[in-house]
């Protein structure tokens, strides 16, 4: 599931292709395609761009680290975890012509939706910060935490539009 899946629809502007990124998934595009991911709760979205080439990538990861997994087998799905997902996203952007030295990051999600579950949202955010710091990638904007679900659209101009469940929208 690490390949982009085209939703086939048109962007709201009527001009661009839209690539939907599912849970535990990532995608890389360049040109005029928009990347979207919906229903971010405790999951975290990491958006990376090389401003020079315009290559953009979006990761929607569910859990902080494969090391935390209680499963006895390695996951065939790196984008399920923040740490392996960030690595995979950087690799795919590199393959698409982006330079790791130029990448900048935007971070969204990691909400605390439920009291019942261990605070996975904040741990996802913390792990993403660490993974990006390790890779030397600056975080230029963020909309994380709180108890609200979010939907994300990564526009071709590098802007990240974040819409919360209550309808509030901001651009990072």
């Amino acid at each position: 599931m690490s390949h982009p899946s085209s939703a086939g629809g048109r962007d709201a502007s009527g001009s661009a292709r839209r690539v939907a990124v599912g849970v535990g998934d990532l995608a890389v595009v360049d040109g005029d395609a928009a990347l979207t991911t919906s229903g971010l709760g405790s999951c975290v979205a990491v958006a990376l761009v090389d401003p020079t080439t315009g290559a953009r990538g979006l990761l929607h990861a569910m859990l902080p680290s494969a090391d935390d997994s209680q499963s006895s087998r390695p996951s065939a799905r790196p984008a399920k975890y923040v740490d392996s997902g960030v690595d995979a996203l950087i690799d795919e952007l590199g393959a698409a012509g982006a330079s790791p030295n130029r990448l900048e990051a935007r971070l969204v999600g990691g909400a605390e939706m439920l009291d019942l579950t261990a605070a996975v949202g904040p741990r996802n955010v913390e792990r993403a910060e660490r993974a990006l710091a390790d890779a030397g990638i600056p975080i230029v904007a963020r909309d994380v935490g709180d108890g609200v679900g979010r939907t994300v659209r990564y526009r071709p101009n590098g802007e990240l539009a974040v819409r919360a469940a209550d309808g509030f929208e901001r651009t990072l």
Binding site: G41, S42, C43, T117, R150
Partner: peptide, 14 residues
């Protein structure tokens, strides 16, 4: 009370 998929994401993660 939120975006449907967001409400269930922490359980799925857990």
């Amino acid at each position: 009370h939120d975006i449907g998929s967001a409400t269930i994401s922490p359980i799925v993660a857990e």
